[in-house]
């Protein structure tokens, strides 16, 4: 079965994900209305400003649409996308989708002057990933059934729960497509189950 990945295109780095997917030969489409999800078999919620994306999701009825989509389809959330996938957020300005059992903390590492790059240890690949953390969120109160997929200096920075993955750094800002590739291979597994 061929996968068509929807990339939520309300605000943020959505075009970079389209580029990463096309490098892997995977078809994608930009999603700006909930109805457009019907043509997709998976969804990426990209980085951007979580308050902006949350507000536009509410305005256009994305909350019920993504929640029901996520019951049967994989979702990848990056940075702001991670915040939106959480059960709980430390800031009332963002309404979470409650797709993975953890609490997200916005701007965990501080403002832009504290943004950084680091080699992150992946649990599914022996080579580290050179990751960019941009005003990145933190992962807290992780439920024991959630899988830790990557960490950096004892902080969990990437998690998986069934078909869903959330991460606090930006795989789309690198030419390295291993993270997208890993998520897609999990997508295919769930599709064949």
């Amino acid at each position: 079965m061929t996968i068509t990945v929807g990339v939520l295109a309300l605000q943020g780095a959505y075009q970079k994900h389209v580029k990463s997917l096309s490098r892997l030969g995977v078809e994608s489409r930009l999603i700006r209305k909930p109805g457009e999800l019907q043509a997709c078999s998976a969804l990426i919620i990209p980085g951007g400003e979580s308050t902006t994306i949350s507000l536009l999701m509410q305005e256009y009825g994305f909350y019920p649409a993504i929640k029901s989509f996520a019951e049967n389809h994989p979702v990848l959330g990056v940075c702001a996308g991670l915040i939106l996938m959480a059960d709980e957020v430390d800031d009332k300005r963002v309404t979470p989708l409650k797709l993975i059992a953890f609490k997200a903390r916005r701007n965990f590492y501080g403002r832009q002057v504290h943004s950084f790059t680091a080699d992150v240890t992946l649990n599914f690949d022996h080579r580290p990933f050179h990751a960019q953390f941009i005003r990145a969120p933190g992962i807290e109160e992780l439920s024991p059934e959630v899988e830790v997929l990557a960490s950096h200096n004892d902080e969990v920075v990437m998690i998986g729960a069934g078909k869903h993955i959330a991460l606090s750094f930006h795989p789309e800002l690198n030419d390295d497509t291993r993270i997208h590739n890993y998520w897609l291979s999990r997508c295919k597994q769930t599709a064949s189950n």
């Binding site: 943020g12 780095a13 790059t117």
Partner: peptide, 14 residues
């Protein structure tokens, strides 16, 4: 520099 451009990338579409 990449981290600086990274924030600019996050502001796109906004």
């Amino acid at each position: 520099f990449k981290v600086k451009v990274g924030l600019a990338e996050m502001l796109k579409g906004g």
